[in-house]
Amino acid sequence: MLELDDLHVGYGRTTVVHGATVHVPEGGITAVMGHNGAGKTTLLRAAVGLLAPSRGRVLLDGDDVTRLRPHRRVRRGLAYVPQGQQSFPQLTTAENLQLVADTRPRGRARTDELLDLFPALREVMSRKAGLLSGGQRQQLAIARALITEPRVLILDEPTEGIQPSVVAQIERTIADLTSGDDLSVLLVEQHIGFALSVADRYYVLASGRVTSSGDGGDDSHATVRAAMAI
């Protein structure tokens, strides 16, 4: 589905990710874990096309999309929820969703479905996104990404700084979405417990390298903790 193949990514002269290979197969959740500054966000930014890798390839459905601009990757079924509850702060919640729905033939109908999934957003439709709470903004960001009906959803720390009840809701939504084979999720998480409870496969990233990977079985906890301690 999505393959990050030996990616080397950095900023200017400094390389941050040194040859990471991550495979996101069809269906299910693939988790990437690692400490602060390990290069998780950098890796994801290369996956969506905001950063150009100095080496390596990004494959989507087997096609090389390394040189494709982000909006073209979105058209091919990639969606990205960046870290930090980003939104268009001066646009209202409704406009944030509409902006994306505009680009899709089924956008409007899809927006209604997503508002049923995130009813809290209905109450704040006419409020500027910059004025929403962090939890509301994260729900907006996830709903906005899902309007494009992606086949691969990339989530960068979706539960960071969010109250437990909303985390639980986001967790449920992710689990629901991936119950079929229509959507694969690439999830970056710091909370090992949460990540391993939902993930089918995991990778551990340390200092820009994959140091451990496996499936989310019972012994994965200990393995991941050991890998992250390096």
Binding site: L50, H71, R75, P82, L91, E95, L99, V100, D102
Partner: peptide, 23 residues
């Protein structure tokens, strides 16, 4: 729709690109 794209692109170019807008 164009107006929304223009305002969105001004506010956050990267975000606009990654939600599918050709900036």
């Amino acid at each position: 729709p164009l107006g929304r794209r223009i305002r969105g692109t001004v506010q956050s170019r990267d975000l606009a690109e990654t939600v599918g807008v050709s900036t």
